[in-house]
Amino acid sequence: MDITIVAGARPNFMKISPIIKAIKNANKDKLNIRYRLVHTGQHFDQKMSGDFFKQLGIPDPDVNLGCGGGTQAEQTAAIMTKFEKELVENRPDVVLVVGDVTSTMACTITAKKLSIDVAHVEAGIRSGDWSMPEEINRVVTDSICNHFFTTSNQASQNLLKSAVSVDRIHFVGNTMIDTLYQNLSRLQKPPFWDEFKLEEKKYFLATLHRPSNVDDPEKLKTILNSIRNSISGSKVIFPVHPRTRKVLESINFHDDNIIMIDPQGYLEFIYLVKNAKGIITDSGGITEEATVLGIPCLTLRNSTERPETVTLGTNELIGDDYAKLSNFLQKILQDEWKSGSIPPLWDGNTSKRIVSILYNIYESKKEALLAA
């Protein structure tokens, strides 16, 4: 079986790492799976890409399409043009895409136009928020791909409601959590830990990058002021996304308790997640990691494509309700947060299940062709 695995942006790397390891382990068991890793280059700076490859043991890509920068339309077009040439020259049995970034959608469309099967890891999740580019990417990808690997029963139900046949939906769990479990013993204390005199469970971790939160300077300032006024002098570690940094520089925001740092490598970032008192974020993936690690999490969005992190986990939606933000931060400080549980199949074995299912599907197809 020949698989082309696509990765383009930082969230993808955490999802493909355990899949590649599962393929290598399967081949040790005498399976014959060949894979080709394609990096679209959507995230192209060292902190957003290179460091993750090194820390997570991801091999160098077979090809980097170099499609960083530009508008979303320009980037989509560049990825499709270059990925088409890649597939013509190296045609696989199936293209494996993960997550919901621009690369996911662009490579799915390109493969399907060449009549190549596509399998989508993290299929079926929905926020219902059409202002998010990721929601468009998810829906387009799931409307045309062949096989759907889901993280939750809710995601599977979403696909069934979209008339996807049950035999193409595979509830397997969460590859992000595979990566988390595989690296918990390898976490690294960030170099600034001692400099800022950080202590376990005595700081908050914040991440903000959604356009709805960071593109308007006044709104971003309001969010940060609300956090500052609600944490009773606690420190906030704030890894600043490149798009957010530009806005912060425009408003000249500084606060001694909000410590702004560069984006971190995976091992350093998860160290910060694991040891935080609480997390304030607008990311989806971080809510999953917080849920598994049992860390209180506040999401500055009105909806989530990962509802299990709220219904089962440690996450709560805040939206733009800053009074609610303040109240919930006080609950965290007073150790009055809800107890969470880990969603089904978030057990570290998701990638093994994905590789096994794909192998059985495509080896069966080959056997049927030989028998015909």
Results as ranks from 00 to 15, higher is better:
residue 132 M to K: 10
residue 134 E to H: 04
residue 133 P to L: 00
residue 50 G to P: 09
residue 49 S to Q: 13
residue 75 Q to G: 09
residue 47 K to C: 04
residue 40 T to W: 07
residue 89 E to P: 05
residue 142 D to M: 08
residue 164 V to I: 15
residue 93 D to E: 09
residue 125 I to N: 02
residue 57 G to A: 13
residue 56 L to A: 11
residue 45 D to P: 09
residue 116 I to V: 13
residue 127 S to C: 11
residue 67 C to M: 07
residue 91 R to D: 06
residue 80 M to L: 08
residue 59 P to S: 15
residue 49 S to H: 11
residue 88 V to P: 07
residue 78 A to E: 00
residue 44 F to Y: 14
residue 108 T to D: 05
residue 80 M to E: 07
residue 136 I to S: 12
residue 58 I to G: 12
residue 160 L to F: 10
residue 116 I to E: 05
residue 160 L to V: 13
residue 128 G to V: 14
residue 66 G to L: 09
residue 89 E to T: 10
residue 67 C to N: 07
residue 158 N to W: 00
residue 102 T to K: 04
residue 71 T to I: 12
residue 148 F to I: 00
residue 42 Q to C: 08
residue 56 L to G: 07
residue 125 I to E: 01
residue 47 K to L: 06
residue 97 V to Q: 01
residue 63 V to L: 14
residue 103 S to K: 07
residue 41 G to Q: 05
residue 72 Q to R: 14
residue 112 K to I: 02
residue 47 K to F: 03
residue 141 T to C: 02
residue 108 T to G: 05
residue 42 Q to T: 07
residue 149 F to W: 05
residue 73 A to Y: 15
residue 154 Q to I: 13
residue 80 M to N: 04
residue 101 V to M: 01
residue 78 A to R: 01
residue 46 Q to G: 10
residue 100 D to K: 00
residue 151 T to N: 07
residue 103 S to N: 12
residue 153 N to G: 12
residue 98 V to C: 04
residue 128 G to E: 14
residue 78 A to I: 01
residue 125 I to Q: 01
residue 134 E to R: 02
residue 110 T to V: 11
residue 58 I to W: 08
residue 152 S to V: 13
residue 131 S to M: 15
residue 118 V to E: 00
residue 99 G to M: 05
